[in-house]
Simulated scan of single mutants.
Amino acid sequence: MKLVLASTSTYRRMLLERLHIPFETVRPEVDETPRPGEAPDALADRLALEKALAVAARQDDALVIGSDQVAHIGEEVFGKPGTVERAHEQLRRMSGQTVVFHTALALVNTATGRQRVERVPTRVRFRTLSEAEIVRYVAKEMPLDCAGSAKSEGLGITLLDALSGDDPTALIGLPLIALSRMLRAEGVELP
């Protein structure tokens, strides 16, 4: 079976390359708008599965991976900022706070129709950030395509006091421990 990543994220592609399995990437066409009253963890789960299913509908005999990440404080969700101004706003709001990043993962087997979904939360405690630190960080790293405006795998690690979770790759966008478990359950030999 071929392996397909339902994402055009460079971060997810680089993470999946660590498993040394050939794969292709396909852009999922999914509306990522939260539903009224939808909890952040449920949003992450839904979007990961919808992305996998959107791509799976166009694939034969494939394992399709979907993933999505939602960062939040309580019910306040932080998506990809898209602009420098929004990145500044997000980091101001997260300064001194603990933010939960829910990274959801879905695997769809197009041959059997089997669907698997797991979510890996990571708690991230931001230090209290000065306005100058926020401006310098955003200018240097331009984290406009990252939920929560911070790249822990890069300079964003300097914004943090602590982080905790079961899989360090979850915070980057693709939880490889959970994915490896799912792939083995589908008969993929790892390592």
Score class of each variant (00 low, 15 high):
residue 64 V to W: 07
residue 59 Q to A: 13
residue 187 G to V: 00
residue 123 R to Q: 15
residue 5 L to T: 06
residue 167 D to L: 15
residue 174 L to I: 10
residue 25 T to G: 15
residue 110 T to I: 13
residue 51 K to M: 08
residue 52 A to H: 07
residue 80 K to C: 11
residue 105 L to N: 06
residue 75 E to I: 02
residue 86 R to G: 07
residue 116 R to N: 13
residue 168 P to E: 14
residue 77 V to F: 05
residue 167 D to Y: 15
residue 51 K to L: 10
residue 16 L to M: 08
residue 27 R to P: 01
residue 10 T to G: 09
residue 91 L to H: 01
residue 169 T to D: 01
residue 65 I to M: 06
residue 150 A to K: 04
residue 91 L to G: 04
residue 85 E to A: 15
residue 23 F to W: 06
residue 77 V to W: 03
residue 6 A to Y: 08
residue 150 A to H: 10
residue 57 A to F: 07
residue 37 G to A: 15
residue 140 K to C: 13
residue 72 H to E: 07
residue 54 A to V: 02
residue 152 S to F: 04
residue 108 V to A: 11
residue 175 P to K: 11
residue 165 G to R: 07
residue 69 Q to R: 00
residue 82 G to I: 12
residue 127 R to P: 09
residue 165 G to K: 03
residue 141 E to M: 06
residue 109 N to P: 07
residue 8 T to E: 11
residue 122 T to H: 09
residue 134 I to A: 04
residue 129 L to V: 03
residue 109 N to G: 08
residue 139 A to K: 12
residue 76 E to H: 12
residue 7 S to Q: 01
residue 137 Y to L: 14
residue 96 G to P: 10
residue 152 S to V: 05
residue 134 I to V: 14
residue 151 K to Y: 08
residue 29 E to V: 15
residue 191 P to Q: 13
residue 67 S to H: 08
residue 160 L to D: 08
residue 19 L to T: 01
residue 126 F to M: 00
residue 5 L to Y: 03
residue 8 T to Y: 07
residue 164 S to A: 05
residue 25 T to I: 06
residue 138 V to D: 12
residue 92 R to S: 10
residue 146 C to H: 00
residue 32 E to H: 06
residue 89 E to R: 02
residue 50 E to A: 05
